[in-house]
Simulated assay, not measured.
Amino acid sequence: MRRTTRETDVTVELNSTGEIETGDRVLEHMLTALFHYMGRSARVKAEYDLRHHLWEDVGITLGEELRSKLPERFRRFGSAIMPMDDALVLVAVDISGRPYVSAELSFEEGEEGFEKALAREFLWGLARSLRATIHVKTLSGVNAHHVIEATFKGLGVALGQAIREGERVESTKGLLEV
């Protein structure tokens, strides 16, 4: 999947060689964790003007790629409670056709490159294009790196569960509008 705008040029290919080259070492680190815990290899290439645009557009492009690869029947829901040192983060995903994000990211100590706003832009881009509800809640945590990385690891686990093939349409309506 490729997304090209005046601000970014992003390519995301799931189940491809695991090269991740965005020019943003923090995002590359987070994507490596995300794909590992999702149980998928991926190739990500990106050029960008601002980090804000990069994080958002990588989220959008990943959501489009995931949506294009969903099986006809998929499990829809996924969740994880992810510990990482001082951090404990809950992540829940519902691929339901309704984009929404609640991102309660909290920490006391910042770390260069690890920003709440960027993580939130990634999550919103992903939720909009995947048409998913994503909840992230920091249960505890002091260090920004640990909280944000636990978020991406937990998101990987939750997405890995939600996109797996299922035996039925996971809706009492009998239809998912994805």
Score class of each variant (00 low, 15 high):
74 F>K: 05
18 G>Y: 06
109 E>Y: 11
115 E>R: 12
177 E>N: 05
147 V>W: 02
165 E>P: 11
118 L>V: 11
137 K>C: 05
98 R>Y: 12
72 E>D: 15
101 V>R: 03
122 F>M: 08
21 E>A: 15
42 A>N: 10
73 R>K: 15
114 F>C: 07
117 A>D: 15
156 G>F: 00
74 F>E: 06
107 F>H: 06
78 G>T: 09
53 H>C: 10
69 K>R: 14
63 G>Q: 08
54 L>G: 05
71 P>I: 08
147 V>K: 01
168 R>S: 13
15 N>V: 01
57 D>Y: 02
109 E>G: 01
84 M>G: 00
109 E>K: 14
56 E>C: 12
159 L>S: 09
178 V>L: 14
131 R>M: 13
173 K>L: 14
159 L>K: 01
17 T>F: 12
97 G>C: 09
23 G>W: 04
92 A>K: 04
12 V>M: 02
45 K>T: 15
74 F>D: 04
136 V>W: 01
144 A>E: 03
3 R>Y: 06
15 N>L: 09
151 T>E: 00
74 F>H: 14
4 T>V: 15
158 A>D: 03
172 T>Y: 09
73 R>N: 14
165 E>T: 11
14 L>P: 06
83 P>K: 02
80 A>M: 06
91 V>Q: 07
116 K>R: 14
31 L>A: 08
106 S>G: 11
64 E>G: 01
120 R>S: 15
66 L>H: 05
148 I>V: 11
29 H>T: 12
51 R>T: 14
158 A>K: 01
105 L>H: 02
58 V>S: 04
79 S>Y: 13
17 T>M: 06
131 R>A: 13
148 I>H: 02
163 I>A: 03
106 S>H: 13
4 T>S: 13
116 K>E: 14
96 S>G: 15
28 E>Q: 10
52 H>V: 03
24 D>W: 06
66 L>K: 05
38 M>R: 00
124 W>C: 06
79 S>R: 13
11 T>H: 04
84 M>H: 01
158 A>M: 03
117 A>R: 12
26 V>Q: 07
153 K>Y: 02
15 N>K: 06
134 I>R: 02
25 R>C: 00
64 E>F: 03
13 E>F: 04
74 F>I: 07
18 G>P: 08
